[in-house]
């Protein structure tokens, strides 16, 4: 072995080889269009109380076709579908957002804990996930919603959040299993880091990325699911949501004669879900750095 001086010879040789900063990665124009749409919808929903929109009483005659005064037409009660769509966005987005946050916090924590500790902990948590998954989701949703006298925004969001726990949790568990075997986690153990620190510092940043991608997709699923519940007349009592407006719009011969009542909220919902899915997929690809295992 030669007597190479570690500090001089090697430092020089090695450091000069430093590659330039990581190659610029692009999310692409499509991603930004989606984000733009989501931001617009989100902003409008957020600002709705201060916008000149209302769901109280008729603003025009019943079932008016779209016009300059009512862009999306009016429903059977003469309410502006445009106003209803904006107000509905508040409920739909809130439900979707809250449901997926609930799913990520509860499911994610359970999944990471299961994947990290394995053994009995994993068996118990795995059983919870499988129970949630083997129960028909619609029945589960009906059970939970029916357990409350008054269906509130919170009830719907919690219901859908519980349904999101198992899929998110299983993804978190699978990702954790992959990373927990990696040597940097062993290294943290050898250093003497406590379990909590290892989970927060080493595992969470890695597991969060696939979870975030799934979260965007899951939010779309939750919004659709809220629509499904509304279709069964089980969404927020006396409120507006896309699902509720769509449900109103399919009554009697509305779909044939004045399809705008259902079609406009469906269109907005469709674009929103599409944006969420597309953005979620791009996020996943973007963060899919060389060494990640997904």
């Amino acid at each position: 072995m030669s007597d190479m001086d570690a500090e001089t010879t090697i430092v020089g040789a090695d450091v000069d080889e430093m590659p330039d900063d990581a190659v610029e990665k692009e999310l692409g124009i499509g991603f930004w269009v989606c984000i733009g749409w989501l931001a617009t919808i989100g902003l409008v929903a957020l600002l709705a109380p201060w916008l000149p929109v209302t769901s109280d009483g008729a603003q025009g005659g019943p079932r008016e076709a779209p016009s300059m005064s009512h862009w999306f037409g009016t429903d059977a009660n003469g309410r502006s579908v445009f106003d209803l769509t904006i107000l509905g966005a508040r409920t739909s987005l809130a439900v979707g957002l809250f449901a997926i946050i609930f799913g990520m916090v509860v499911g994610g924590s359970l999944g990471i804990v299961a994947g990290y500790f394995k053994g009995k902990v994993d068996a118990v948590i795995g059983f919870i996930f499988f129970s949630l998954l083997s129960f028909p989701q619609l029945v589960l949703a009906l059970l939970i919603v029916n357990a409350f006298d008054q269906v509130s925004l919170f009830t719907v969001a919690i219901t859908l959040g519980i349904l999101a726990v198992a899929p998110v949790g299983r993804l978190a568990r699978a990702a954790t299993l992959v990373f927990a075997e990696r040597e940097f986690v062993l290294a943290a153990k050898v250093i003497g880091a406590k379990h909590f620190r290892i989970i927060i510092r080493e595992l969470l940043p890695n597991v969060l990325i696939p979870m975030a991608a799934l979260g965007l997709l899951g939010m779309g699923v939750a919004i659709v699911a809220e629509g499904g519940l509304a279709f069964l007349g089980l969404s927020v009592d006396g409120g507006e949501s896309w699902g509720i407006t769509i449900n109103d719009g399919r009554q009697s011969r509305d779909l044939q004669e004045n399809p705008w009542v259902a079609m406009f909220p469906i269109g907005v919902m469709f674009l929103t879900i599409l944006s969420l899915n597309f953005a979620g997929d791009r996020v996943r690809e973007y963060f899919d750095v060389r060494e990640t295992a997904f």
């Binding site: 040597e183 940097f184 062993l186 940043p205 890695n206 060494e291 990640t292």
Partner: peptide, 12 residues
């Protein structure tokens, strides 16, 4: 460890 890349947390 054997695998130098895997022994470092890619996110830190």
């Amino acid at each position: 460890f054997q695998d130098p890349i895997s022994s470092l947390n890619p996110r830190r």
